[in-house]
Design a protein around this nucleic acid. Sequence first.
DNA 1: GGTCCCTAGATACC
DNA 2: ACAGGTATCTAGGGACC
Length: 823
Amino acid sequence: MKISFIPIDYDYFDFQGRNYVKVIGRSKEGKKICLIDSCDVYFWAILKDGLNENEINSLIEKILGIQLDVKGRKTKVEKVELVDKKFLGKDVKALKIFATNYKDLHDIVDELGFDEIEKRRGYDLGFVTHYIIEKKINPLCWYEIEGEILDNSLEFGEIGKYLDVDLCIKLKNYEKIEEKKFSPKVLAYDIETDGIKIGEGEILMVSLVSENFKKVITWKGKESLKEDYVEHVKDESELLEKFVEYVRKISPDFLTGYFSDGFDLPYLKSRADKLGVKLSLGIDDSQPKFSRGKMMTGKINGIVHVDLLRFIQTAYSQYMKSETLSLNEVANEFLGDSKKDFEHKHSSEIKKGEWGIYFDYNLHDSVLTYNLFQKFWPDLLEFTRIIREPVFEISRAGLSKYVESYMLHRLEKFNEIPEKRPTYNEISERKHRGKVKGAFVLEPTPGIYEDLVFFDFTSMHTSIIISFNLSRGTLLEKKKKDCYESPEIEIGNDKKRFYFSKEPGFFPELLKEIFNKRKQFKSEYKNEPNKITKARSNAFKLLSASVHGYIGFFGARYYSWEASSSILAFVRKFNIDAIERIKKEGHQVIYGDTDSIAFLRNGKSKSEVKDLLKKINSELPGIMELELEDFYKRGIWVTTRTGEFGAKKKYALIDEEGKFKIRGFETVRRDWCALAREVQNKILLMILKEGNEEKALEYIKKVSKKIKERKIDLKEIVIQTQLKKPLGEYRSITPHVVAARKIKERGMPISPGTLIKYYISETEGKKKLVRDKVKLLDEEGKYNIEYYLEKQILPAVENIFQVFGVDVKDIIKDKKQRTLGDF
DNA sequence: GGTCCCTAGATACC
DNA sequence: ACAGGTATCTAGGGACC
């Protein structure tokens, strides 16, 4: 019997000392299937150059004799083969050393301190990754499989009997087949509790949302108006049991929550432990397992637990408008939907009539999570397919893991042996080597300009890596006759160049694939602009842009200070060259940052500009490409606060359709109060639309009057700042630290990541410091007129008006006039 | 108590 | 530790008068 099958999750177990993989997935017909499979277990010993046959044979004999008894497990070297391989692009002779159990490879490696062996590699990938590489049963790709059905078999300790799947198959044959549509079964969940710390208070309710399925399980508010999605149970224990029952009945591919790694799942587990309920969510009846890293991670056997927040953090946060990654804001941005209104309070304070609202609130959180999962699914799918790690990992990993896994899964094509993870000592050496000099930013001349053009390089770092074959493996020890040469790089007081082979390296070659995906999704977005094509385009832009960061990241297997420095040196060179080239054509260049150039049309037509672009492109090497970002009707650049220089990374533009683009200004910074941000935003828009400052000046007069008359709402003057580390670690006591202390005193939870909200009030006495005037939002007080005028409004608008030679200081402060008016 | 300079800290840009 | 460097800006911290 042949079955079309899509792998979703991977797990492994030991049976009689050997490793077996469980691949959980679906058949085309929607049946949940568990494949049992195994693969060769081995690692590599790279031999020193120039060993003769006898030396190699006697080495192999020695290695074959290795037998270990580790952790009660007998393991041995089963087989050794001599193979021609490559390591970092160089030809090497290597021994492929087969062993019984993957977990023992480290111990065998430790026994291999022979002089003939130069390096030992390929033992630190993790068994699942090793398996996927070995067998090429890639996640979320379709296969036609054949095998022995184990449902009633005694094999593997009767695994087929106790696994909660439709079919359990011992894999015999498989073949990759063409892609089919796959709509995963998704179940979203969310809990409401009386506690904030994990397991502290009771769980009041849990909501579950799947396709055509909505449920709130609760043991509270029985008297309340009964909605048909509400299911009442006896108590909290029964709630937990019912939750498990529904999850098992629905048997989803994905169980998804929002911040559920950090809250919902550990909370459920903790309460279940306290109440003696087994949270047997796994297909093998196992309970969720938590691993502690920087972030806690909750894993369920056979169901992929996806904390959407984690995926959004890595894949989208840099491209989002939302200022926080709260469910509400993210849902707003991607779904145009919000959380329902409900003011959280302890269950003892909830009135009878309010429970219905609470249930609805709880349900809607799961609805939002479910819908968000569906929105992001195409991206999660694409990332998983291209990176080839299980969805569970993809949904949680950082960018370095994305890049690295992409490479590791494709080394075989190049006959490459994988590099190992750096050791602790190597990491600290890398950290101490000194920063790589970064990109070039052109200082703008402050002013307001008309008819602007923005050019930018397409995936600049990536195209440089590809075009100049830059990587650790292609770095040459010294200059060769025919090689790529980096621009001069300053090292201390020295200048140096690095040289790279022209023989294509596996790393730059592999990058091409990412680069092409990026191109494909970008044009897809252009043809069909919507939130999702945009998100996907941005996601791959991010992956593509992360590769040079990966090379410079000290934890990377393929870290290279030399390659990283060279990439940045090329980035600087090409941007500066392009600036000069555009100047030479008679354009005034206003600004440039890393891979972009802004310049004036200076009377030239758009098609002349496009011709210039073509000309420049024909002169660029390799796959490097400069593209037209857009034409802009008007743009403004200001000075820095001190007024000495043109400010970098701060500008505002209006395009020809009247769309605004604002970068770096207080308007886009969340640590400024809404009032200052709105005022600055309005002023920028007026100025960009009209091309003069008159209206804006009128407006600013009105606003400062309103402030002085205390007519500003509290929510307009709230300042919010994120706590970035534990409260005790702050060396300087800033306003937001003071505010955070106040919150803590009230017994409210704060931790790194919490947004601290406060306002600055009038104070009696001679308190000078801002932090002495900090008040929380519910603390009574009058806002500090002077502070908001001089420290929020004035700095936000002062240097914008300065561009027109207008000094707004007196207009805003206006102290004399106020005194006169008072009489 | 005020001024100057420097640093810590947060956030943005690419 | 979990992609990088460049940059702006505020408020605190400390030296000095």
